[in-house]
């Protein structure tokens, strides 16, 4: 059906990740295909890590945790962006291209950002999943 699933994760909000990640892991297990977790961080120190390397290590550790617990091949791919708040979509699109994933499973809204604002609000606070789905060449599965 699919060759590889990609799931964007926000390590700063791990508690709120579980539904999208659970879904992705289930699907990956069901089809017996690999899952790649994509994380984006800034170069400056963040709540998650002091620097991009530490962020990558944490993402890899998280991938390893899931992989060990669920018996699915989980890979981690970490990116830096100059301004992550405005570059999440672009990062995911780039990751789709670089990892060769053909299915994106993600939360419909990135935690911390608000949802469903009609009109101007949509331009300011877009639904990442929604915008991504219209830009990506691959299938996008939004988890609500």
């Amino acid at each position: 059906m699919y060759r590889k699933i990609l799931t964007p994760v926000d390590l700063a909000h791990r508690d709120r990740l579980s539904r999208a990640v659970d879904t992705a892991v289930d699907l990956a297990g069901h089809w017996g295909i690999p899952l790649v977790l994509v994380g984006v961080t800034e170069a400056a120190p963040s709540a998650v890590a002091h620097n991009p390397q530490e962020y990558r290590q944490k993402l890899e550790a998280y991938a390893g945790e899931i992989s060990g617990a669920r018996g699915v091949a989980v890979e981690a791919k970490a990116y830096t962006a100059h301004d992550p708040a405005t570059q999440i979509d672009d990062t995911i699109l780039k990751a789709v291209e670089e990892t060769g994933a053909d299915l994106v499973v993600m939360a419909s809204h990135v935690p911390g950002l608000a949802s469903h604002v009609p009109g101007l609000g949509d331009a300011l606070v877009p639904s990442h999943g929604g915008r991504l789905a219209s830009h990506a060449a691959v299938s996008v599965f939004l988890v609500r």
């Binding site: 800034e42 400056a44 301004d83 992550p84 708040a85």
Partner: peptide, 9 residues
């Protein structure tokens, strides 16, 4: 508090 990825709003 030094976060560069705070919400755009």
């Amino acid at each position: 508090g030094g976060k560069v990825n705070a919400p755009v709003s």
